[in-house]
Design a protein around this nucleic acid. Structure first.
Lengths: 222, 222
DNA sequence: GTATTTTGACATTTTCTCTTGTCAAAATCA
DNA sequence: TGATTTTGACAAGAGAAAATGTCAAAATAC
């Protein structure tokens, strides 16, 4: 029989129960990334994930209620990490518009190449799983688009923020970057990163020309 | 006992066996679109699809070996239809670049709105199902990108075909169109179609300015 | 009208995964 | 050392869906 439910945080092996639990949770998150990012979400089983984590099923349900819950946690972590790194670069000084844009997007493309599991997860495994996951994807895309928008605004201070944010151009740019990433993943990252970034710089040139244009078509408010 | 395996094409009820089979196949394709495009691929069962088609499981396996095979057939049909319609518009006369581009892409966006099941299938349900389906998606994206490229080349004959095709701009444009479509689906098609198309026309303006630029960065050959 | 083909309803078998539970070995504490 | 906690291996029931099979009713041919 259990001693006391309230006697919870006693140390065992020098580690508190909550810390051990957190450690197992982290193992499961990593195993989830490994499974989802290689075998794919649909073909990953909880048992298999636990095997990757070196844990048994019991510990899965200790931290997550379902495979979908794990997916949301893994996905959220990957997105957060990406955004944090991009935002950090965004706050650094830069010498030219193209320097900033290739810097920020370089963070992004580099992260894909360094961990293709994340790339697969971001673009192939999250859509169509469930409405909740679709929503998470939508939010993440909005945030990524926000970063692109911020980078462009920082690179070209002459742009009117309100004017630019409501144009179709940020969506277009985000879509362009996304499809470039998808193509890069599918071709196995054969194109050198520098080529990708010089293409980004080229797109930036187009945006620059946009800066001097007349009013863009309005976008309906949601 | 069967009479003769060779006596195959005898008419029954005024319809040949192969025609009835084809009819069932078509029913299943439509039911598959209905299921995959609403409930989603993962949560669709073969039994449920057969129920939608008004047929029993036996007839499913008469035409398809698995749910995945049905998905590939449905997806292929939707893509073919879209491409055929876009190509047809592409072959029609046009009065201005923007006329052609909004015409071709209007076909595309209109098809999405008219049948949101197709929209969901195209962008949410096919990724991450299996390597074979991923490949089909990749091919379809390439074909869509080809249409966009052709439309731009037809709209701006001044562009050098080889020069333009190998630039990042077609990929960027395709990505832009794709993300516009995804956003439109997710917001429930609230933005009027005319607004979408005027944004397309605006992007066309950017491409026009690209036409007078210097050489774009090279793209690595696969 | 009778025989044959086609079809629908449903049963069955199999397989897979989730989810919970049991139990003993290992680790740790006191 | 002896008691307790933690952990790993694995069993087992529940549930769902795939894939095949059975059988009789309905439709059609002759």
């Amino acid at each position: 029989m259990k001693k006391q439910a309230l006697e919870k945080q006693r140390s065992y092996g020098g580690v508190r129960a909550s810390q051990r639990e957190e450690g197992r949770r982290l193992k499961l998150l990593d195993a989830g990334l490994g499974a989802f990012g290689t075998v794919g979400y649909a073909r990953s089983s909880i048992k298999g994930i636990c095997g990757l984590a070196g844990l048994t099923e019991r510990y899965f349900y200790e931290s997550f209620g379902s495979k979908e819950e794990l997916l949301l946690a893994v996905y959220g972590g990957v997105v957060e990490d990406l955004l944090a790194r991009a935002r950090e670069r965004l706050s650094q000084p830069f010498v030219s518009p193209s320097d900033l844009l290739t810097g920020v997007l370089g963070i992004y493309f580099r992260a894909m190449r360094e961990d293709p599991r994340k790339a697969r997860l971001l673009y192939f495994e999250v859509l169509g799983v469930s409405p909740a996951v679709d929503r998470a994807y939508q939010d993440a895309t909005r945030l990524l688009g926000g970063i692109v928008t911020e980078a462009v605004l920082a690179a070209f201070p002459v742009l009117d923020r309100r004017f630019f944010s409501e144009s179709i151009v940020p969506v277009g740019l985000t879509g362009a970057v996304t499809l470039m990433a998808i193509n890069w993943i599918l071709e196995g990252f054969r194109t050198p990163l520098e080529d990708i970034l010089s293409q980004v710089a080229f797109l930036a040139g187009l945006v620059e020309s946009f800066a001097g244009k007349s009013s863009p078509p309005h976008e309906a408010r949601p």
